[in-house]
Design a protein around this nucleic acid. Structure first.
Lengths: 204, 204
DNA sequence: AAAAAAGATTGAGTGAATTCATTTTTGAAG
DNA sequence: CTTCAAAAATGAATTCACTCAATCTTTTTT
């Protein structure tokens, strides 16, 4: 049976995450003071630091859970992609971008991205980066799948193309997060246009 | 003649930038306390805040000067590019990346990137973003120039391709900055490989 | 050239993240 | 059931970016 200590620890971890998610959502990342998060989670500030490296790590933990969901819904597209290359890419990026603002605000995304760049060695930063790798692989897999299905030319480096498409959409998402006015639809339109020449290249 | 006030102001601005550049370089961004920067620049902390919005803005000002130099040396490549598409792209990205660590450490780059994402509305953040746009245009111009010279296919959207190539190299530079071990040569190799399919697409 | 207005400087004060020496709780051993 | 060591929790103290009311300097006005 699980020891008391392990259960208490798991419970506190959960309480801290829930408290933070709630406060980040209601008052924003900056305004959510560690003292308030700790109080809401019914732990002391010192205890918080036994569970997370710092305030940023906490945000990255929450964002990572989000990205895991996105990754999951991406799987659906990969397993049965539309036959046309342009359609398949549009479907995948739409899946990614439509998911992006359900739980997280642009401000939270910006902070998370900034933290993952600034402190790349922290545990949740590594996890966040690892998830990016999985997303990148997913795009590469889509290209490979289209090739296997005979819907895309086979004489092209699927990995190189996939990496470039992912890196582009990733950077465009950053631009999107930096601009409060831009709607998701605009982001999708821009990326679809950028993908067009490559879709043309791959078309059988 | 320039008023006394204007001269004093310009001088203080210069002193602050020099002091910060020196301390960021020697002890790193985080360890450079505002009090130390102000002291070295022979102004008070309060005065510092009449010249810059915050500590991050100061770093972005320094990084922006760097990027301006990179942009300048990029012009040389654009004006007389090698005829082969792949060669031309390699030449441009080598110019960019070789310049990147002359004055700035990876840590300084990471902090600058993080700040420009996190506080996109601050004056120097806007400037930094504007410089990114100029760099992106430079890549688009290179493609257009190759097309004009008859060295690249004309039936392809030069802007879409240029944006994608730039966004990819930009994101790869971020990955490079996040990984202390990666040498510039590796970065260049990876990006050249990623560019290869597109270079093939464009080849006449 | 004195007075008034505008602009700039100042550094002690404020607030929030992070640290750490001390105390408390848990699980194991006798 | 005690005793003890390891693990976890605690919150007061520290640190540092940033603010602001008071003061000083330059420029303009009379």
């Amino acid at each position: 049976m699980t020891g008391l200590r392990a259960r208490q620890k798991a419970d506190k971890n959960r309480r801290i995450l829930e408290a933070a998610a709630q406060l980040f959502h209601t008052v924003g990342y900056d305004a959510a003071r560690l003292e308030d998060i700790a109080h809401l989670a019914e732990v002391s500030v010192g205890t918080f630091y036994n569970y997370f490296e710092n305030k940023g790590d906490l945000l990255l933990a929450i964002v990572s859970m989000e990205v895991e969901e996105v990754l999951e819904s991406g799987k659906g597209v990969i397993s049965a992609p539309p036959p046309d290359v342009a359609d398949a890419l549009r479907r995948l990026i739409t899946t990614y971008f439509d998911h992006s603002l359900v739980y997280l605000s642009k401000q939270m995304w910006r902070t998370a991205m900034a933290l993952s760049i600034q402190q790349p060695a922290t545990p949740f930063s590594r996890r966040y980066t690892a998830l990016d790798v999985l997303l990148r692989n997913q795009v590469c897999d889509l290209i490979a799948r289209l090739q296997a299905n005979g819907n895309a030319r086979r004489d092209v480096d699927a990995r190189a193309i996939g990496e470039m498409i992912f890196n582009n959409l990733n950077l465009m998402f950053t631009e999107f997060a930096k601009c409060e006015e831009m709607p998701v639809a605009t982001l999708i339109d821009v990326v679809v246009r950028q993908n067009a020449p490559i879709a043309g290249l791959l078309h059988v």
